[in-house]
Computed example of a mutant assay.
Amino acid sequence: MNIDFKDKTVLITGSTNGIGLAVAKGFLEGGAEVVINGRTDESVRSAIGRLGAGSRLSGFAGDLGTAVDCDRLVARHPSFDVVINNIGIYGPQDFFETPDSEWDRFFQTNVMSGVRISRAYAPGMVERGWGRIVFVSSESALNIPADMIHYGFTKTSQLSISRGLAKRLAGTGVTVNSVLPGPTLTEGVSKMLQSEVERTGDSIETVAKTFIKAHRSSSIIQRAASVEEVANMILYVSSQQASATTGAALRVDGGVVETIA
């Protein structure tokens, strides 16, 4: 299958590392013009350097969990063919110790960023008769973690928005989907497991595999996914070939979620 993004403009939020960076690389390889995003100029410059600065790649530094920076983004880049709502924060915290401010921070970053950005760019896609909006959710949207209820809540919210917006844009040529990664070997996860790598002398892949077996025992692949494996699903659902897929929640969770649907 030859997935071609030539002449397509793409925004990937939260894309200076991890899954977002892998997605940016895939779009660039497919011929797209790509705008990546990070919170700081330094992180954006570093990511551009890793991807290879070229005429089809640019960056936007700003916290898209805020309305102000979303407005700045839209003013600078008024149109995109593909939007990947990837920005997100996570972290364990007990329900009874999570203050209102933390619930709001997670909601603004993980949920409202995608609401504002989709609201800004979907009308142009509708006018052109083609577009793709993807929310990068998580298996935690279905398998709510007891130690990150505030995070799971935001990921479930993304599924509701994605499904509802897909129905709102019915028949327009614009598709809206969610992709649900499971345990993935991102830079953040690698840092979390680094102490165990140093203690055992095992590779990061081996340590991650042991972690998955202990903490995500329902995993069918019995290992962490790579960022490229998750990116492949995002790239496909953003392509012309996925024109009949909309309103879907597409799992790349290694079989962690115990359901056949």
Rank of each mutant, 00 (worst) to 15 (best):
D4H: 07
I12L: 08
G18I: 06
I19W: 05
F27V: 04
E29L: 12
G30R: 03
A32S: 13
A32R: 10
T40E: 04
S46P: 00
A47D: 05
I48H: 03
G52C: 11
S55I: 08
S55L: 04
S58F: 07
D63I: 00
T66P: 00
D69F: 00
C70R: 05
A75H: 07
V83I: 12
G88I: 08
P92E: 09
F95H: 08
T98S: 09
D100P: 01
M112I: 00
G114M: 06
R116W: 03
S118D: 00
Y121W: 00
P123G: 09
F135A: 03
F135R: 02
A141K: 04
L142V: 09
N143R: 10
N143V: 09
K155G: 13
K155S: 11
S160T: 08
V174R: 07
V176N: 08
V176F: 08
T184G: 11
T186W: 07
G188Q: 07
V189K: 02
M192L: 13
Q194H: 05
R199F: 09
I204Y: 08
I204K: 04
I204N: 05
I212M: 15
I212S: 12
S218R: 11
I220S: 08
Q222D: 14
Q222Y: 01
R223V: 09
R223D: 09
A231P: 15
A231R: 10
N232Y: 10
N232G: 10
S239N: 03
Q240I: 01
Q240R: 14
S243V: 04
A248K: 07
A249K: 03
V252I: 14
G254T: 01
T259R: 09
A261S: 11
